[in-house]
Design a protein around this nucleic acid. Sequence first.
DNA 1: TTAATTTGGTTGGTGTCACGTACTAAGTCC
DNA 2: GGACTTAGTACGTGACACCAACCAAATTAA
Lengths: 152, 152
Amino acid sequence: MPTDTAPADPPAQAPDLGIVDSLAQLSFLVQGALAKVAAELGLSVIQLRLLGVLRDREPGMQELARHLELDKSSVTGLVDRAERRGLVRRAPSPRDRRAVQVTLTDEGRAAARALEEDAGRRIRALAAHLGDEQRAALSRLASTLVAGATAV
Amino acid sequence: MPTDTAPADPPAQAPDLGIVDSLAQLSFLVQGALAKVAAELGLSVIQLRLLGVLRDREPGMQELARHLELDKSSVTGLVDRAERRGLVRRAPSPRDRRAVQVTLTDEGRAAARALEEDAGRRIRALAAHLGDEQRAALSRLASTLVAGATAV
DNA sequence: TTAATTTGGTTGGTGTCACGTACTAAGTCC
DNA sequence: GGACTTAGTACGTGACACCAACCAAATTAA
C-alpha cells in the first residue's frame, strides 16, 4: 500500500516498486498535480473532472452520475456549485420534460481549455525525467491498461 | 483533460491517448480502485493513506502533515477520526513534551494489512489485460517516473 | 384508459474532509 | 528573563458524498 508522495532520496537507479506500488504512487502524484491545476482556478478535482466530461457531451444528470460514478444526489450538488460559479448551465431537455441537459457556459468552456493546457504542462513535467522513448512507451502501456480496464 | 473512467467500447487495438490523458485516466482508475478497497472497511482513501504511512513510521502530527501534504489542522481531524475508530493512538513523545507520536493500534495494523492485500488484488486486476512483459515494463517506467518526480 | 411502475431529478440530513484563524504550551535563542 | 519559534488543538466554514424520502413526467400493464 503505497501512500507516500513526499520527496524521497533520488535513487541513482530507480528500484522497481512492483506494479501495485508503482501505480498507486503514480496515481497520487498525478492526482496531486491535477489538484494544483484546479486550485489555480479555485476549483476542486471533481469540478475539473466535471468540466472535462462536459467538453464533448451535454448529458443529463443521471448520465453524468454514471460517468463520474457518483450518486445522482451528489451530482445535483456538484452542478449546483458549478452553476453558481457560472461554469455550467441547466437547460430543459427537448425530449423529456423531466430531464435536464447540462451544458458548459462560455466561461466554463474557457476554464476547461485553461485547465487542459495547464494539466498538460504539469503532467508532462512529472514525466520530465523520462526519455522520449520511455515516455512514449509509458503512454502506450497506460493507454492499453485504461482501454482494457474500462472495457467492462 | 481526461476525466472519464466509465466503461467505454473496447478498442481492438487501444489508441494511444498521449502521455497526459493516459496518465490522468489511469490515475482516476487507480484512485477508484483504492476508494473501493477503503470502502470495504468503511474507510476513505485518505484514511487508507494514513494507515499506509504509519506502517513503518511513528511520526508526529507535523511530520504526518508533511507526508500527506496536508495542513496540520487537517491532520488533527484526520487522526481524531482514525483514533475514534480505534485504528491509531496518540502517545506522548518521549523527547518533546509538546509533541505526540501517532501509532497504529493492533486493529489498525490488521486493517493496514487487509487493505494492502486487497489493494494488490484490485490493482493487479486493473492490469490483467496486460501481458507479463508489458506489466513489468509499466511497473519499471512508473517506478522511474515516481522516483524522478519525487526527488525534489 | 386508468392504475402501477419506472425514470429523472431535487431536498434534507449526516458524516468526512480540508482550510484558515486563533489559541495554548513547551522548547529555543539572545 | 523575555522574544521567538515549534507542536498541537479548537472552532467556524465550505465542499463533497451518501442515503432516504419525495415529486413529476414517462412508460408499462391491466
